[in-house]
Design a protein around this nucleic acid. Structure first.
Lengths: 186, 186
DNA sequence: GGAAAATGCTTACGCTGTAAATATTGATTT
DNA sequence: AAATCAATATTTACAGCGTAAGCATTTTCC
């Protein structure tokens, strides 16, 4: 067992990410992460200024996943569906990205840039469908779609946490693209 | 200064509520609440089992406010607008109600009941507009409206935390009812 | 008026984030 | 190759927080 770990920073991010797949950020503690990495409780602080720094890294990863999804989507609805699936598949990462904006996150301006980029992806994706519309109307439509998608994630997750999910939520979850076309492209 | 405080429980809830108007739940600590109430740090525990119990009380209050808004709304859009204004006016309470569903909240089943009641309010409000529609379609529409409203709150709040808010977000915020009719009743 | 219940206070503990000092290793220079 | 310096890890320690336990005071009820 070596004293120096190779690429401990990446390892810590990876471990935190994995924990966040099943548990929420607030239940993560540095000692547990350190233990999983096989290092002392404070080795972490050689690579991160503080816990928020680690959170910022997870958020960056989240945006990368979403952006990949957009690049691979060949229809607008499939981008939306991918987005929703991300929210359902990585709910705790999603919370970090779009949930309560902790005030300490304002120290990472690049995160906001990434968020804006994702939103602009919606606008660009919309344009082919609204070739004659004014910029403002496109942007308002984009707001609506964005809002619907995020709200739907919240609803589907709420359903998950209950024992029974309503029929229409089940249907929506299994037919995301259809639902998106029904509602947002009406 | 009396040893016994009259109605300390209500006082603690009130103090926590007021703190949550400007600060998020996670920055609240019991010692500070106790100090504001002029009691010892642990007097709290004579009235609440734990911190989550206090959170549950705040959430109940939140639902009461929302329900009042629904009772006073005379159009469907005005209910939606009220809902959104609640989210913007009490963002941290809103987070407790609709944000990351902390697992410890599952111990308060009445909260879920209240949430369901609010959702049913949407369905009932919708029915007059869709007299001939099937129940399932009404419910899917309700999901969409609910999702849009919650997502919009998230977007408007995000705008607030940035220094500049886009033109269309400003317009939407100032014309909530119009926006709702444009988007969800199309 | 005395006992019991309710409510308050004091003390204390364990968990967590993280600062500070120290040790070890790897890289660079001589 | 030896010496030095930077990077990285460890140990120790502390402060903030939730809250349990035990004791003190007040209120309630017979």
């Amino acid at each position: 067992m070596s004293y120096h770990k190779e690429n401990l920073k990446e390892r810590l991010i990876e471990i935190a990410w994995e924990i966040c797949i099943t548990e929420s950020w607030h239940q993560i503690n540095m000692r547990y992460v350190a233990e999983k990495a096989g290092v002392s409780p404070t080795a972490f602080y050689r690579h991160f200024k503080n816990k928020s720094d680690l959170k910022a890294e997870l958020i960056r990863r989240g945006y990368e996943l979403i952006n990949e999804g957009r690049e691979n989507a060949n229809t607008f609805s499939s981008y939306g569906a991918h987005y929703i699936k991300f929210g359902l598949g990585y709910p705790h990462i999603y919370d970090l990205m779009f949930g309560n904006i902790d005030s300490d996150m304002s120290r990472y301006p690049d995160l906001e840039t990434r968020s804006d980029a994702a939103f602009n992806g919606v606008i660009e994706g919309l344009k082919p469908f609204m070739p004659d519309a004014a910029e403002k109307d496109i942007r308002i439509k984009a707001v609506h779609i964005w809002a619907s998608v995020h709200g739907l994630v919240a609803l589907l997750r709420r359903g998950d946490s209950q024992d029974s999910k309503s029929e229409e939520l089940k249907w929506i979850e299994n037919n995301l693209e259809e639902y998106l076309e029904m509602t947002t492209f009406s």
